[in-house]
């Protein structure tokens, strides 16, 4: 590809470079700190490459915390939510964009209100509901509601599907397809790029969820990874082991990071192909 080298381009490039440095520095710093001995944390000027490099945190972390169980539970939750939520949300998005049914707009606006009320006040009523149906101290409060819908994804996919031609549905009907198979066989495959992008976002949201697991589960065997990490930090505030905390944070970020790098292509390309128009 031929590129004009204009001064504007150079300036923009430099600005982006500075931006990129600020984006990556905190993570590099986290890595560096996690490899330090506790007392080397307080040195001025800060040491970028720790001397000596101390790997013990990466060993200690597995015994000092409940990280392994946390990862396991987070995986269970994330995978179930990904599978079900993608299905339900895309189905709802299909209905909102392509079908006409009573109260369509009212229902959509209602859904939008769910993200306007602060979760904290719904905590106790939700706890009562979960108690009544026996979900407390199980992974279900993290899995079931999230599996039933995600308003952001519905919103997003609705925009995307609006952009797909309605004629496809009519054609499908003529060919004897029902609505479900029109959705399943025609629209869903066409949404694949948008869905892949959403899968990553959804995974991120689910993986990073902290408040729900904190309140709705009790036993160590049900903690998710974020709760396990927060436990490390909460011990009497004065006695914080900064390198250990950084190690834990890094490990918590890692799975999303890996998934993200693998799916990078889809993530950026799919959004480009969706042609979202807000």
């Amino acid at each position: 590809m031929k590129r004009k080298i204009s001064p504007v381009r150079i300036i923009v490039f430099i600005i982006l470079l500075i931006g990129a440095v600020t984006m990556i520095v905190p993570f590099a710093w986290m890595l560096s700190t996690s490899l330090k001995e506790a007392n080397l944390v307080y040195t001025i000027p800060p040491q970028w490459i720790p001397k000596p490099v101390d790997w013990k945190n990466y060993i200690e972390i597995w015994t000092a915390s409940n990280l392994l169980t946390g990862i396991k539970n987070s995986c269970i939750i994330s995978v179930s939510v990904l599978v079900f939520c993608t299905f339900t949300s895309s189905m709802a998005a299909f209905a909102f964009s392509k079908l006409s049914f009573p109260f369509k707009n009212a229902i959509f606006v209602m859904l939008l209100t769910t993200i306007m009320v602060p979760l904290v006040v719904l905590l106790v009523p939700l706890f009562v509901i979960y108690t009544k149906i026996g979900w407390i101290d199980t992974l279900l409060p993290m899995i079931v509601p999230a599996s039933m819908c995600n308003i952001n994804i519905i919103f997003f996919l609705r925009q995307y599907m609006t952009g797909l031609p309605k004629e496809l549905l009519d054609a499908a009907k003529i060919d004897g397809c029902g609505y479900f198979s029109a959705y399943w066989r025609i629209y869903l495959p066409l949404c694949k790029p948008a869905i892949v992008a959403n899968v990553i976002m959804l995974f991120m949201i689910t993986w990073n969820d902290y408040f729900g697991p904190l309140v709705f589960t009790h036993s160590e065997s049900k903690q998710n990874i974020q709760v396990a990490i927060a436990m490390l930090n909460s011990h009497y505030i004065q006695q914080t082991d900064i390198p250990l905390m950084m190690t834990a944070s890094l490990i918590a970020i890692l799975p999303v990071l890996i998934l993200f790098i693998i799916c990078q292509k889809y993530f950026t390309e799919s959004f480009a192909m969706t042609g979202i128009k807000g």
Partner: peptide, 23 residues
Amino acid sequence: VEYIVVADNEFDTKLQTMIGAGQ
């Protein structure tokens, strides 16, 4: 005995939620 451990800064929130729910 079932032993539940909660982070100390979240303990009160959790205990009150449980009491509020009759648990």
